[in-house]
């Protein structure tokens, strides 16, 4: 895999510097069978330093969670050496098992089997609340 260019694949760009590995883990990219490159501390005109992830295959990945982690991230879809699409990911309406409810009175605190689900309640303020107890997720 050539780090500089990929023929067909996905480039996750404008990741906050040093956060590339977190995103690699959140998207479970380690489970893919294609090559994946994480470039950290790349120079960026816009951000000073940034991280980039390149995935050497056009796979169907659920990238929605990136909208929650960092709205500045851009997704580039590459086909035949050309960028065919570039976009910001929208805030997901629901996020599962990425954040945990911190309310000690929440049912998720005693039932380990339950998924930790947060629902988007205010798009402008990027507010998420626990599906079960409605506790606000404070970042």
């Amino acid at each position: 895999m050539n780090i500089d260019s990929i023929k067909d694949g996905i480039v996750i760009d404008h990741i906050q510097a040093k956060k590339g590995l977190d995103i690699y883990n959140a998207l479970k990219l380690g489970e893919l069978d294609c090559s994946v490159a994480i470039i950290t501390n790349a120079k960026s005109n816009k951000m000073g330093r940034k991280d980039i992830i390149k995935i050497d295959k056009n796979i169907d990945l659920d990238l929605n969670i990136l909208g929650y982690i960092d709205p500045n991230i851009t997704i580039n879809i590459i086909e035949n050496d050309e960028r065919v699409d570039k976009y910001h990911v929208e805030l997901p309406k629901e996020i599962t098992n990425i954040i945990k409810c911190k309310n000690p009175r929440c049912i998720t605190s005693i039932e380990q089997e339950l998924k930790h689900i947060f629902i988007l309640t205010d798009k402008e303020k990027r507010t998420y609340r626990c599906k079960y107890c409605e506790t606000l997720n404070e970042e």
Binding site: R105, I110, C130, Y132
Partner: peptide, 26 residues
């Protein structure tokens, strides 16, 4: 139920209607 959200959890798999009669401070 003393834990908040327990009646919602119950309702997800229940075959009969659930009424929340109070879940913690929620």
């Amino acid at each position: 139920h003393p834990k908040e959200g327990a009646p919602l959890v119950a309702s997800l798999k229940s075959t009969v209607p659930i009424i929340n009669a109070g879940d913690g401070g929620h």
